[in-house]
Design a protein around this nucleic acid. Structure first.
Lengths: 238, 238
DNA sequence: CGTCCAATGTGCTGCAAATCACAACCTAAA
DNA sequence: TTTAGGTTGTGATTTGCAGCACATTGGACG
């Protein structure tokens, strides 16, 4: 047990308290013991870059705790955030499985504990453990799913309001219900929100202002309050 | 051997001449024999709808021959084509693996031979055959990959010209080199091209006209001729 | 050889959002 | 308290493209 960046590092997956259902590492004991042998646990500060798009795949990172931003950038510097990965997810899975370079850039949004597994160790691990392999397939499915959702948002929306409403409603599913509405911790800047829906920062500011005026939702500091869920749903044509 | 829709149906995967490297069904004999037992081979005419987004996942379709359009449609009828699947691909894999409804609609673009495998048969098959499971993971990776590419095209492009140029260059990789340039068979209408890059049909017509005038590329009937590849690459900022 | 319908080509108009350019904030360290 | 740097708020301007309307072509088929 050490604690850099204010984290409690759990060295062993077997006794890990962070583990949870749906986690990649939620595996039966024999597989878990094997995973244990090939993984390297470590802690990262906020803003650490795990890998950059275009690099050849070294292996996967399993998120034990913290949140990681997955993004892609065009030559002229415009960037798009694909997803914010949470605890339990596996980063760099597609690249590691397919052997192609990482397609995304991964950067921690806060201090994180991550397990790293080298590519060949990981592939061998998957070959020897059908349960883990199926797990991997499931995680890849989820990545596909979220990618498809993003494509729908980018390609089928008629306006930025619609895209933003979509995003807020997506967030709303894991928020707390209070008397004023649904309360969610977001800790993202307008800039980052813009990169999540493929628009400009100014437009996000404006549309959020609009939502505030119309009593639909408001973002103050890092907490988002959804005041009128039905109203937002109407915006996405539901 | 029967031959509806002008296809030669190969009933057995073991002796199948269509099989090729990279195909999902390119598996060692024991796995293939097991697959053989659970699959249903059949032929479909052009325009057949295999599944519709939102339906609960019945299982997977393996494309033996032909091309299948994978698309998604918004409530107001706007549709976006995610991908044109070729022989060797597996359709409905994410939904089948994750147990969630199909997220896409699959429709044949031409007479196709497809093998269908029921969901629980398929999952059991993956559990029992680590090689097939890894194969599935690889195919899912490729789906992710192409989804990410689409996201980049939709989210990071500055103009329709750029998106269209991207698409043409993507196609160019599997075209024939001739003295006039690269020749590719596309057989898609302007409408369908528009749905591939998330724009309107009129704009596609206009931009293609522009490309023709600038001697970059021309689409006549169902053959596309890339006359100036470098010129197209300049459009995407490469 | 005409008929018909889908696929293309083209002009015009309106508008949502990108972009530029600042002003007003906030909070975190010096 | 002051300063500085990253946020957020807002106006003015510009523009690419969707959307509509219609003309034209072309190919399948009786």
């Amino acid at each position: 047990m050490s604690s850099p960046y204010g984290l409690q590092i759990t060295e062993s997956c077997l006794i890990c308290k962070l583990r949870n259902s749906g986690f990649f590492c939620d595996l039966p004991k024999p597989s878990l013991e094997d995973l244990e042998r090939v993984k390297y646990a470590s802690a990262y500060p906020q803003g650490a870059v795990l890998f950059v798009e275009g690099q050849s795949a070294r292996g996967v990172y399993i998120v034990c705790s913290g949140r990681v931003k997955l993004s892609t950038t065009s030559r002229d510097g415009k960037t798009l955030i694909l997803r914010i990965a949470q605890a339990g997810e596996v980063l760099g899975l597609h690249a590691t499985v397919s052997g192609k370079p990482y397609e995304l850039t991964a950067e921690t949004l806060q201090p994180c504990q991550l397990d790293f597994v080298k590519r060949d160790d990981f592939l061998r691990f998957l070959q020897n453990h059908a349960d883990a392999c199926l797990n991997a397939a499931q995680h890849l499915s989820e990545n596909c799913q979220s990618a498809y959702e993003m494509i729908r948002s980018l390609g089928l929306s008629h306006s930025v309001s619609e895209k933003l409403a979509r995003l807020l409603l997506e967030w709303a599913t894991d928020g707390d219900n209070t008397k004023d509405g649904i309360r969610i911790k977001v800790s993202l800047t307008h800039e980052e929100i813009a990169q999540l829906i493929g628009t400009s920062r100014e437009t996000v500011t404006r549309v959020l202002g609009e939502f505030r005026d119309k009593q639909l939702a408001q973002l103050r500091g890092s907490t988002l309050l959804i005041r009128n869920r039905a109203g937002l749903e109407k915006l996405i044509g539901a």
